[in-house]
């Protein structure tokens, strides 16, 4: 399986939603498409799922246009919709049959898949009565049912409460072993947890395509976090004047200090603090920016 997105562009009236976006996706990968709200993630996902037509460019799966390969794609919309008046089982039967699976096979497969997504006891309840998390899990069941080569998920956990979020994340961890996944999210910790590879999108343009380790090693820049009492905040001003300090930043009660040659200078910094009679509550040398910070840097500055 190989998914290729080639120079996809989509405009909505005057707004450019996706701009010359290209990427490739190979079997077994799990790719997180991340970006701020309105970056064009959903639009791109919808183009891949063949719900929207691209203005330019094309999406190709195994060398064929995506519209000819729908059987190979499992799609989970942001808010999965089902026929409210059908039961969970009936909805799966319906979607499964539309995907070209025989009724007999489905009757065998549906209990298995419902167990997998944790909806065993609910199969004969109307979807109308389902909670958001249950609908999402049913949506995943639906996307898995025809054993597609690629599963595309649009914000699978964004609308869920912490419990539902945990359930769905665990489920995705589970299915990731068997299929290729492309998911969009604006919650970084989720992407960090599930995916190895990230594609960051901003204003419809791809600004980064990288792996977790690469991203962190590239932004590897040791910093010092000093927690001080409020009365000593004047010290922050003094620190920023020091020759070896590159940047200071106050985050709550902590001061984040970036400096040259940290091994040598960190002790000088402590010395300086003691000289100024600063009450140090906590002192920490920390390796990395969090993914969130890296993301913010990328998205805000780029």
């Amino acid at each position: 399986m190989k998914l290729e997105i080639r120079n996809v562009t989509k405009r909505f009236k005057d707004k450019m939603a996706v701009n010359q976006f290209s990427m490739e996706l190979e079997t077994g990968q799990c790719v997180g498409l991340i970006g701020p709200n309105g970056a064009g993630k959903s639009t791109l996902i919808k183009i891949i799922a063949d719900i929207l037509n691209a203005d330019e460019g094309e999406v190709v799966l195994d060398g064929k246009r995506i519209s000819k390969m729908k059987r190979e794609i499992g799609y989970l919309p942001q808010f999965p919709n089902f026929f409210q008046w059908m039961t969970a089982r009936e909805n799966l039967l319906f979607m499964g049959q539309l995907s070209g699976i025989s009724k007999k096979r489905l009757i065998e497969d549906i209990p298995t898949i419902l167990t997998k997504v944790g909806l065993t006891g609910e199969q004969n309840r109307k979807v109308r009565t389902f909670s958001g998390g249950m609908k999402q899990r049913l949506g995943i069941a639906q996307a898995l049912l025809h054993k597609p080569a690629l599963i595309v998920m649009d914000e699978p956990v964004s609308a869920l409460d912490p419990i539902g979020r945990r359930e769905v994340l665990n489920l995705i961890q589970e299915i990731k072993k068997e299929t290729t996944i492309l998911l969009s999210t604006h919650i970084l910790s989720d992407a960090e947890e599930i995916c190895e590879r990230f594609v960051i999108i901003k204003n419809g343009t791809k600004i980064e395509d990288t792996t977790m380790t690469e991203l962190i090693s590239r932004n590897h820049e040791p910093v010092v976090y000093v927690k001080i009492t409020p009365k000593d905040h004047f010290w922050t001003q003094l620190v920023s004047q020091l020759p070896y300090v590159k940047k200071t930043e106050v985050i709550g009660s902590k001061v984040k200090i970036t400096m040259d040659n940290i091994e040598v200078h960190k002790n000088l910094l402590i010395q300086h603090a003691l000289n100024n009679d600063v009450d140090i509550v906590h002192f920490e040398v920390s390796g990395n920016d969090t993914l969130e910070e890296i993301f913010l840097n990328l998205v805000v500055s780029a």
Binding site: K70, L98, S99
Partner: peptide, 13 residues
């Protein structure tokens, strides 16, 4: 309105 049309058309229909 319910999005089912788009959803149905993501299947080979």
């Amino acid at each position: 309105a319910s999005g089912m049309l788009a959803f149905i058309l993501t299947r080979p229909v």
